[in-house]
Design a protein around this nucleic acid. Structure first.
Lengths: 247, 247
DNA sequence: TACGTCATAAATGTTCAACATAGGGTAAGG
DNA sequence: CCTTACCCTATGTTGAACATTTATGACGTA
């Protein structure tokens, strides 16, 4: 119901992407030619071309007529394309770079998202948030399990949607895989899940009580916890929200 | 050099999109069947199917096997897909809704982008920003012209890129068409361009001088001017940044 | 008359084979 | 050594045939 982005996981595009993210083909390299892929995967040329077109649309590869398909530089990848983000999250040798940048982005942005949610959330939104929270609480013993992580992600996404702004809602789709990645990795590095759960509860309550300032603070605390669990240092202290807001 | 998103403007996908945004086909309606399009546009079925696949990837239409292609609801459109945003900006009967939401998003976000730019901008970034500003100044007499607007857009995009964060930079690609739309429409409603230019200069200087707080303030002022020129009222004053920051 | 089943038509999905075009590499010639 | 012309390879395009899904209408039975 949350609406998976691509759902499929065995298509050619996915496998090629896994190979690319696995370093088998690096930017500048050429991936196998159409006919070779047809042979290796037992697909018709049309299918192959269709999947390659998908990669082209994501900015992953460029096709050079009469020559081949070259992997493009990371900077060319359309990482706001839900499909691309999904690939990166699933198969990503997640570039520590990308990981840090996404976290940095969330650090800047989510406190405001939390504030907006606190002012705009409807009863319907609150139900979604609470369901996710209770899902986390329920799977508490199995921390680190896929189910717990899914609920954690659902919690954050529900907050994005509660802003009732088109752009933020769509951004939540795009960020979902990245958030998932961060959640999984941060939950792995966490031994006691209780403090994290408490922080989430505080955020939920602040939104329910329509207390934007409290919600912002709670969001900052959660993200600081995430950064700590990941061992990620915020590059420039001047950028981080807590520093900015203490002025 | 700024890198157009799709560049092409006469392909089938564009024309269909123009028709959809023009209201000729509304959400829920079915667009013509493949064979009819082949006939009308003189294209091969493969070509038609390729273009339709593009629309599908943008969430614009859904194809129902054995039945036809239905226009999806606006909420399903992937407005963070550069191609989609580009279409909306070029052919858009820009839903006043979308316009307001994008402006709202920028109001929340750009002050922070300005701050980050003020702390992270390199000499190279400053050159880009200044070039755009001088471009605006140079075309001052022809306010409302395409050239003036382009420089205006380039100015804002350069600031996004100066954050040196992957996500923000990519967001600038996505927001470019939307910013363009807002710039054009707000410049139309403006008689004297000088105050706007002054506000832009102030932002540029703040970034150059590495004064984040001043940059934030300047960004807010610019956007307030835009909102005013568009006659857009910020929905919930509690959301707007100036209100939040005066606490 | 109402309802379920089956046949048919129409539209999309898939595959195959042939030809067109672009780009790079190579070899001949100056 | 440089230039030019040719050829080969891989991608781009087209057309037709076949498969699958969906809606519609005819038919028969209760």
């Amino acid at each position: 119901m949350t609406g998976k982005v691509t759902s499929g996981d065995n298509n050619l595009a996915d496998q090629l992407m896994a190979a690319i993210l696995g370093g088998q083909y690096q930017p500048g390299d050429f991936i196998p030619k159409e006919m070779a892929i047809c042979r290796d995967y037992g697909l018709s040329r049309n299918q192959v071309r269709h999947h390659l077109a998908t990669l082209v649309r994501g900015g992953i590869i460029e096709r050079i007529s009469g020559h081949g398909s070259r992997v493009r530089d990371f900077s060319q990848w359309q990482i706001l394309d839900p499909a691309v983000t999904d690939w990166i999250a699933r198969y990503g040798a997640p570039h520590p770079d990308i990981q840090r940048e996404v976290l940095h982005f969330r650090l800047t942005v989510e406190p405001w998202v939390a504030m907006m949610a606190a002012t705009s959330a409807t009863a319907h939104d609150l139900v979604a948030i609470e369901e996710a929270f209770e899902g986390m609480q329920c799977c508490l013993r199995e921390t680190g399990s896929e189910r717990y992580n899914d609920q954690d992600v659902a919690f954050h996404i529900a907050i994005y949607r509660a802003t009732h702004n088109i752009v933020w809602s769509q951004l939540s789709h795009v960020l979902r895989p990245s958030i998932h990645m961060l959640v999984v990795r941060s939950n792995i590095g966490t031994h006691d899940p209780l403090p994290s759960l408490d922080r989430h509860r505080e955020l939920m309550n602040a939104i329910r009580m329509r207390q934007p300032e409290k919600a912002r603070q709670a969001a900052v605390t959660i993200l600081e916890g995430t950064a700590l669990a990941l061992g990620v240092e915020i590059s420039d202290p001047g950028d981080s929200l807590p520093a900015l807001l203490s002025k």
